[in-house]
Write a protein that binds this DNA or RNA. Structure first.
Lengths: 251, 251
DNA sequence: ACCCTAGAGATTGTTCAACAATCCTGCAAG
DNA sequence: CTTGCAGGATTGTTGAACAATCTCTAGGGT
């Protein structure tokens, strides 16, 4: 999920026939990379990642090496490699000679995370207008999918699912910039944010207001009103930050 | 260098006597942390990091496990842990079942890196004006130190040293935002950029023009002309990017 | 009753040796 | 020229062992 297929980057720009072939090649390459990845360590990391992001391992929890080697059926060395992977995604922290823990983020971290979010997301949207080939409509499709997924999950009152759909929306938003490094930063950023969500008791109030705002944002992008979209997004993120901080102070 | 002493953050603001003591305590704590940290793995990573940033290990080079365990006198597992550390700093890349390599960045990467640089640095400078307590003059001292270091190194015609001083300048610039995550992102970003410098044959033309511009930037900050500083910095980074790309195309 | 110190037990940090899986090289066959 | 197949080298993973450090508890001193 983090840095597997980043080095493909084919230098496009040929006949449409070749382009189709290139796309197919990239697809296959991505599939292969997904199958034969570092296996044990990454597989263990995948399981732990899900446990953390889904809240099974709450912030503050310690991860015992001995215990997890038995559960995950990997050796201690491999497990420690998985720990390192997650550490650099911000999902675990090492305390020397004491072990690994799920980090406990505080209000200061929320402010820090949103500072970075605002800078990146607002800039991406604002500069969408200056792109050389006008943004093709197909690029916006993933965003629409996320909006609709959030709306559907809200109808079913599955609020955690709403949260992940909202996050995917912002991930895809950053993706429009075609910047591998922005994607990486955003990936880690949202992972940390997810950590914050789990100490909040009321997921509904936290996520529900932003379903409609995401759709509004999508429509502005579709209409190519990038400046207004950027302004909206800026206020959106300020509100979201404030909501999180308020929920935090309610312990 | 990446995630060791991030959790210190002493809540400053006392009498000058206490402040001196606090600073001293922090210094000692940092030294201790530097000594007894994860030891083997981080120590090995330090050596490798220097070898890479100083160009002894050029982009494209493969790092053999067997060879390095003998040179660094650590076990293979510890060495692999060091590899992981450097991988997430962007100084190494893993290729499954093939080993670790010093990444070879291309023009596309340069564009990507500068895209992110511009967003972050320009935003930091622009928002310096809105801070609650006006920026104390002492916060700018590290920047002045870097400017003077670059000027001194230029007089001695030590161009690589000029490059590192310039980078420190930008690192300290980002530091003014007091954002742990921006600092982390910038650290990795500049490390990757340093990688690019090593494939360039002419360090002088690359670094010299920016010594004076750094001083100009510093003076604008000192005069609290943040908007103009941001505009200057934006153009500065565009020029720097163009210079790098030109040097690149000269093979 | 309180503080400090020492030591036992548990956990992590590191090393070593071995085996399995995969990649690269060169060569022979079609 | 391409394809298929050894053989050697390198990486991926394991398990056991020992050293270093932390935590917790019990005991002595004030």
């Amino acid at each position: 999920m983090c840095g597997v297929g980043d080095d493909a980057e084919v230098g496009a720009g040929q006949r449409t026939d070749d382009e189709g072939r290139q796309a197919w090649l990239r697809g296959v390459a991505a599939d292969v990379a997904r199958l034969d990845r570092s296996s044990s360590a990454e597989r263990a990391a995948d399981i732990l990642r899900r446990s953390i992001t889904e809240g099974a391992l709450p912030p503050g929890a310690q991860l015992s090496e001995l215990e997890l080697t038995e559960v995950l059926e990997v050796s201690r060395n491999t497990l420690r490699e998985a720990f390192r992977l997650l550490t650099h995604e911000g999902l675990l922290v090492y305390k020397l000679h004491r072990g690994v823990f799920v980090p406990e983020l505080d209000e200061h971290d929320v402010v820090d995370l949103y500072r970075l979010r605002r800078v990146l997301e607002v800039d991406v949207v604002r500069r969408l207008g200056e792109r050389d080939p006008e943004l093709p409509a197909t690029r916006l499709e993933p965003l629409l999918d996320d909006v609709e997924a959030a709306e559907a999950a809200a109808l079913a009152e599955r609020w955690p699912a709403v949260g992940t759909a909202n996050m995917r929306f912002h991930e895809h938003l950053i993706g429009l910039a075609d910047s591998a490094r922005m994607n990486a930063v955003t990936g880690r950023l949202l992972a940390e944010l997810r950590l914050v969500f789990h100490v909040i008791a009321t997921p509904q109030e936290l996520h529900e207001p932003y379903i409609a705002r995401n759709r509004g944002l999508f429509e502005l992008l579709e209409a190519r009103k990038y400046e207004q979209a950027a302004a909206d997004l800026h206020q959106y993120l300020l509100d979201s930050e404030q909501g999180l901080l308020d929920a935090f102070r309610a312990h």
